[in-house]
Design a binder for these strands. Structure first.
Length: 934
RNA sequence: AGUCGCGUAGCUCAGUGGUAGAGCACCUCCUUGACAUGGAGGUGGUCGGUGGUUCGAUCCCACUCGCGACUACCA
């Protein structure tokens, strides 16, 4: 094995081997375990959030595969209607063309071409991340079979009256020229004005003041509303006003919607351009006067001089004319929330159009019940509330989009514009008895992308067919996703899954945190703080990184700022870390917190961890006499010869079993951070720091000190056995390095198999707890740490061997000390070990306490008395503080009376221990001070 | 306005009704044959504030200050 861990080469090689052998496919036996991937945009690239979630999904997948489950991680991509269409339109724009210069067919051809060209990016990124998805089942939301599912779902919902077509106000994007659902609206708080306008009475006897943030909409006013209980205006109800600039007469109406305390207490009502006004208009039978074109310019329903003006231009003109007419009573600065399209960023308009809607309440009801009944569980649990909040206030879902890229709505219109819904045109004709001479025209619109996403857990498994996959893998086991798409996706999958499959789509929903940059900012192109996960894996020089971050920006003027920040943050570029280090970082980061700051220094730490593991494997291979990779398993025959396990061997097996138990619990609870921590601590602090060191006296000693062959054999077996099992334990989080090491360790450990990914996950039952070994090694560790502390604080060179004396040793202490002398010599740098008889005068020494045993390091020639006095002083202060605390507690009668007996006992023991320490340290300190004064 | 969350070491974060933890950073020492991407030792915190419940609160409750996310709405 190479001295330094070099991930790059081995990761590609290993992944190709896994994939070419088809090992990612479900094995066909065991309990089904299934995760469907949240399908990324087919033309997109994976960002840090994807890499994070994929790590967790892959860890679950590999873990369950190794547990023997029939495991499927279902891959796929999403056509992402608006996003993809926008990208291709931008490409056309760059060529000086518009979408509408092309036919629909030609444009779609172009989008498909772009999809083929860029669609492989995601897959290759996923391969680099080690994602063990079953590529043979790769799906795309616009595959023929998935498109069939979309049509089927639409038709069935329509048949049940759960999809309807209606003319009502929608969120209209005047730039993209399409309707949007409520969820695609981003409310932004912006500075604006509140104009107070005078509307004169018809008879010229005065006026009322209305306040508005959108004066241009006055041209579409149908009424002015006041609160029926508002004394100021009650007598005006029913009177007519003459709408300025138009001369139209509009009534004053009464509606409790009006808040008398806000503004003037009079509200202009524009039913065609405001959601609240729309409702009021319906209640009062008001005219809906649409004054905008689809691009939000004024249309023919306004006085001629305003026609064709853009809405913002119109606002200026109208305010100017009203001001000239003396009808602007006041203008206040006002903060308002402006609705913008989440893709285009354009200010949206409530706009009257014909659209298709999903009647959502009947679908939401069972979806709420399913979570209430615990048939689907949110992890962390508190997201349940968010889900309920939204589901209980949900409004009908506008699913039609005026785009070209997507699933075309399966509705046909006759010449009178009457719609017929069906699976295809011939079904429509036969069902409705439409003769061949009746001209039918299919709806031009497509469905919201999320409509097909909502079917994903079952459309990917063959629905509407009744396939074996569907029977096996639905419901899926867990959905792993971010909280940002609970409404967009999770809730809709719940509704559609229950509707069409009669069962929830997933048992658990694990909501991950959001990956932020190291300052706690969202990663975005415009902020220039995006990191490509593969740049962490492979590393990237500074200049290419800057180029990557500043190219193709929506706002190129920010480029210099981004460049500066990048230079500051990564003056040396980004070093290569390898996939395993990145994955381990993500796992370690995955606490239940909803925001997770990504810190590159953490990845460096886990890269070091990989290197540590690598070198531990090298040590084991050397110690076990590695015959090289690919060696036969013959050596395992040696295992039948007598072997004797040392206390250290028994200890590490026991500790490994405990660790695996912790990891099992962690995986069950989706606490990847706990799993990572347990694995990290075991590997580094127990296996490397202690166990490997404890094997050295056994394996490396020669001459009369040499251990027996049986003991050596026992240690070698344990070394390779734990190393091998550790690779299995680490594999779900770090698939590559563990495969590489396992290939060498498995034959040494007498295991045969083509790959670690198909081996069984270690079980705590195979590594039972050995309390006795744990106690004994704990004693050893305490002893060694005590001597090391003295050595460290006194700056005794590690190469300097020192004598150690023991005072107050019990029979057990003496036994341990004698039996483990070789460990103590090696790990604590001890030269001679002498047990003092009671009453013997000890030389001046630095001391440490282990229970009642005192460890003495003679000071002569080694230790500076002043330094020792200082060290003891610090220890004394600590012991005194702790003693004081326990005494306060124990002197409290209520504590002794009310606290559980075990707690009181522990406290008494602590008191005794600290008393002993204080006495001993005080005496020792006096002696050392005596030396100083002498 | 509603819902949810956060505030713990210099930084990023775990955590528990009974002895406050990790990584990174920092200080001292060490190139000993797995590993300097390393080893040994160490410094560092009135757990945002106030009050309550409790024998005991960083943890539970109330209030409060600061920060954030989401949802709805402000004519």
């Amino acid at each position: 094995m190479d001295k330094v861990y070099a991930p790059h080469e081995l990761e590609r090689r290993i992944y190709e081997r896994w994939e070419s052998h088809g090992w990612f496919a479900p094995r066909g036996e065991g309990a089904p375990y299934c995760i469907v991937i949240p399908p990324p945009n087919v033309t997109g690239t994976l960002h840090m959030g994807h890499a994070f979630q994929h790590t967790l999904m892959d860890a679950l997948t590999r873990y369950h595969r190794m547990r023997g489950d029939d495991t499927l991680w279902q891959p796929g991509t999403d056509h992402a209607g608006i996003a993809t269409q926008m990208v291709v339109e931008r490409q056309l724009n760059a060529e000086g063309r518009k979408r509408t210069d092309l036919t629909r067919e030609a444009f779609l051809e172009r989008v498909w071409k772009w999809k083929e060209q860029s669609g492989g990016t995601i897959a290759s990124q996923m391969r680099r991340l080690g994602d063990s998805v079953d590529w043979s089942r790769d799906r795309f939301t616009m595959d023929p079979q998935l498109s069939r599912a979309v049509v089927e779902a639409f038709v069935r919902l329509h048949e049940e009256g759960l999809i309807y077509r209606g003319k009502r106000l929608v969120n209209w994007d005047p730039v993209l020229l399409t309707a949007l659902s409520d969820l695609e609206v981003q409310s932004t708080e912006e500075e604006g004005h509140l104009w107070h306008l005078s509307y004169p009475f018809e008879n010229g006897s005065g006026h009322v003041i209305v306040a508005t943030t959108r004066p241009e909409t006055m041209l579409g006013d149908s009424a002015v509303a006041v609160n029926p209980d508002d004394e100021r205006y009650r007598h005006l109800i029913g009177k007519s006003l003459r709408l300025p600039l138009t001369g139209r007469l509009i009534p004053i109406i009464a509606d409790t919607y009006v808040d008398p305390a806000f503004g003037s207490g009079c509200v202009k009502i524009t039913p065609a351009h405001d959601f609240n006004d729309y409702e009021i208009g319906l209640r009062h039978g008001l005219a809906q006067i649409n004054i905008f074109t689809p691009r939000a310019a004024l249309n023919e329903n306004v006085p001629e001089r305003f026609r064709g003006l853009d809405r913002f231009e119109a606002r200026k003109r109208i305010v100017a004319e009203l001001t000239d007419a003396g009808l602007v009573a006041r203008v206040d600065k006002h903060k308002l929330t402006v609705p913008r399209g989440d893709r285009s960023g354009a200010v949206l308009e409530p706009y009257l159009t014909d659209q298709w809607y999903v009647k959502i309440a009947p679908l939401a009801e069972p979806a709420i019940a399913a979570v209430e009944q615990g048939r689907t569980r949110f992890v962390p649990e508190n997201w349940t509330k968010t889900y309920f909040e939204w589901m209980r206030n949900i409004k009908d879902w506008c699913v039609s989009r005026q785009l070209w890229w997507g699933h075309r709505i399966p509705a046909w219109y006759d010449e009178q514009g009457k719609p017929y819904v069906g699976r295809d045109e011939s079904e429509v004709r036969s069902r409705h008895g439409l003769a061949g001479n009746v001209t039918l025209r299919q709806d031009e619109d497509v469905l919201d992308t999320w409509f097909s996403s909502a079917l994903w857990p079952f459309s990917t498994q063959g629905w509407p067919g009744k396939t074996p996959d569907l029977a096996k893998f639905y419901p899926t086991s867990v959905l792993v996703t971010g909280f940002d798409i609970i409404f967009f996706w999770v809730a809709r999958m719940m509704m559609m899954g229950l509707k069409f499959m009669g069962e929830v789509p997933f048992r658990d929903v694990y909501i991950t945190g959001l990956i932020l940059d190291e300052n706690g900012d969202k990663m975005s192109k415009s902020k220039g703080n995006v990191i490509d996960p593969l740049d962490i894996v492979d590393g990237i020089e500074l200049e290419p990184l800057i180029a990557k971050r500043t190219s193709g920006m929506m706002q190129p003027q920010l480029a210099s700022k981004v460049e500066k920040a990048t230079r500051k943050q990564f003056p040396e570029g980004i070093a290569p870390h390898g996939t395993d280090a990145l994955r381990f970082t993500f796992a370690a980061l995955a606490s239940p917190s909803r925001e997770l700051r990504f810190d590159l220094s953490r990845v460096a730490g886990y890269r070091n961890f990989c290197n540590k593991l690598w070198n531990a494997a090298r040590f084991v291979a050397m110690s076990a006499g590695d015959p090289g990779p690919g060696a036969s398993v013959e050596r395992s025959a040696a295992a039948s010869q007598p072997a004797e396990l040392s206390v250290a061997d028994r200890w590490i097996r026991s500790r490994f079993g405990r660790m695996v138990g912790t990891v099992e619990t962690a995986f069950r609870d989706y606490r990847f951070d706990y799993a990572a921590t347990a694995l990290y601590e075991f590997t580094w602090y127990e296996f490397c720091d202690w166990y490997l060191e404890l094997t050295k006296p056994v394996l490396q000693a020669s001459g009369p000190e040499s251990a027996s062959e049986a003991a050596k054999r026992g240690t070698r077996l344990t070394l390779v056995g734990i190393l091998e099992a550790l690779q299995r334990a680490l594999h779900p989080l770090m698939p590559f390095i563990t495969e590489e090491i396992w290939q060498r360790a498995a034959p040494l450990a007498g295991r045969a198999g083509p790959t670690v990914m198909l081996e069984r996950y270690p079980s705590p039952a195979d590594f039972p707890t050995d309390e006795q070994a744990e106690r004994e090694v704990a004693w050893l560790q305490a002893f060694i740490l005590a001597v090391r502390q003295i050595r460290g604080e006194m700056n005794i060179a590690p190469s300097k061997r020192i004598p150690v004396l023991l005072k107050g040793a019990s029979v057990r202490d003496e036994d341990y000390a004698n039996r483990h002398r070789s460990y103590l010599e090696r790990l604590a740098g001890i030269d001679t070990l002498t047990v003092l008889d009671p009453g013997t005068q000890a030389p001046q020494s630095a001391t440490a306490l282990i229970g009642e045993l005192t460890v003495l390091v003679p000071m002569a020639g080694l230790i500076d008395a002043a330094a020792e006095a200082e060290r003891l002083g610090k220890l004394l202060v600590k012991a005194q503080q702790e003693l004081a605390k326990t005494r306060v507690k124990l002197s409290n009668e209520n504590f002794v009376r009310n606290a559980p007996a075990a707690v009181v006992t522990t406290e008494r023991e602590r008191e005794a221990d600290f008393e002993r320490q204080v006495t001993s340290i005080t005496a020792q300190l006096e002696r050392v001070r005596g030396m100083l004064n002498a």
